[in-house]
């Protein structure tokens, strides 16, 4: 039993997150440990939302990645904020519009991938140029405040635990069921293990890939909507750190980069780890240069330790 747990690939991300928390606490003399965990849960929530989508994309196999996540977040966030115009009555409509934008981006990405027969990395990169431009032209760089109710929902805590984090834990658990127990999830895994074998076995490969890219874009849009509510409005640079974050949480979380082996619990461990590293470096009061340097080195070190497993093939 214990051995089974120790062999779980997601365990290490939680261990790493805990060690970083300890290292931070050692510096402050164990003051504010609870608050730090609350903050970590809050920020990790947004990493996990985009991480889920990116993980499904990664599971499709080598070469599959969604680089349009930051642009999609920005577009969905700014359109929804402008549409809602700080009115509580528009919250649901704003959410729906954000999700529709996600579906649209997903369809656009997939058309590029299939129609132009270009690798997803190039397709999503090209589309992110266009999406970001749309966000810039539409939002004009103005910061529009979220409706008060949305702001409250994204920041409210129960006993120190953010409600949003609880909701996303449930979302992640549901997506775990989707990945491991549904025909769709199993098809994603099958394609990642061998696209040819999956095709011969009758898996509708293209339909599954299509759904997966739409899923990733929809989650990115949802994240943009929620993050705009949380951070007091949308901004053009809000998606910036999510390119690294969405990929890093997937890899650090123990999902196989060769595809065919997704892992949901690890997303949480990795997302907490990423935030805690940032706050640790802030606590140590390092200069900006050293902070960037340390962030880069720690991410590479953890990926070297966590990733790099031999592929099954």
């Amino acid at each position: 039993m214990i051995r089974d747990v120790l062999r779980k690939p997601w365990l290490w991300s939680f261990v790493a997150a805990f060690l970083v928390w300890l290292a931070t606490m050692a510096f402050t003399g164990f003051k504010g440990g609870g608050e730090l965990i609350s903050a970590a849960l809050t920020f990790a929530t947004f990493f996990v939302i985009v991480g889920i989508g990116q993980m499904f994309v990664f599971t499709l196999g080598p070469g599959n990645v969604d680089l349009s996540i930051p642009a999609t977040m920005t577009l969905a966030g700014s359109v929804a904020m402008k549409l809602m115009d700080t009115q509580d009555s528009m919250i649901v409509i704003g959410l729906l519009v954000a999700l529709v934008i996600g579906v649209g981006v997903g369809i656009f990405n997939y058309i590029l991938i299939l129609g132009l027969r270009i690798p997803p990395i190039i397709a999503t990169l090209s589309s992110s140029f266009v999406i970001l431009s749309a966000a810039i032209a539409y939002g004009r760089g103005l910061r529009i405040k979220p409706p008060p109710l949305l702001a409250e929902f994204t920041t409210v805590q129960v006993a120190g635990i953010p409600v949003l984090a609880i909701a996303v834990v449930i979302l992640a658990a549901l997506m775990g069921v989707v990945l491991h127990r549904t025909i769709y999830g199993r098809s994603v895994t099958a394609i990642g293990q061998s696209i040819r074998a999956a095709g011969f076995a009758g898996v509708p490969v293209e339909r599954i890939r299509f759904l997966t890219y739409v899923l990733s874009a929809v989650l990115a849009a949802l994240c943009g909507y929620l993050f705009s509510g949380f951070s007091g409005g949308s901004s053009l640079s809000m998606g910036e750190q999510y390119l690294l974050a969405s990929i890093a949480v997937v890899v650090i979380g123990g999902t196989s980069v060769a595809g065919g082996n997704g892992n949901l619990p690890g997303l949480w461990g990795a997302a907490l780890f990423l935030f805690l590293v940032q706050s640790m470096l802030n606590t140590y009061q390092l200069s900006a240069g050293l902070r960037y340097l340390a962030t880069g080195l720690i991410i590479i070190a953890v990926i070297t330790a966590a990733g790099g497993q031999k592929t099954l093939r």
Binding site: V65, I121, L243, L244, I247, A248, V251, V257, G296, L297, I299, I300, I303, T304, G307, G308, Q309, K310, T311
Partner: peptide, 11 residues
């Protein structure tokens, strides 16, 4: 280590 280059170079 057979790592994905996008993550390493992003780091």
């Amino acid at each position: 280590r057979n790592l994905p280059s996008i993550v390493v170079t992003l780091g």
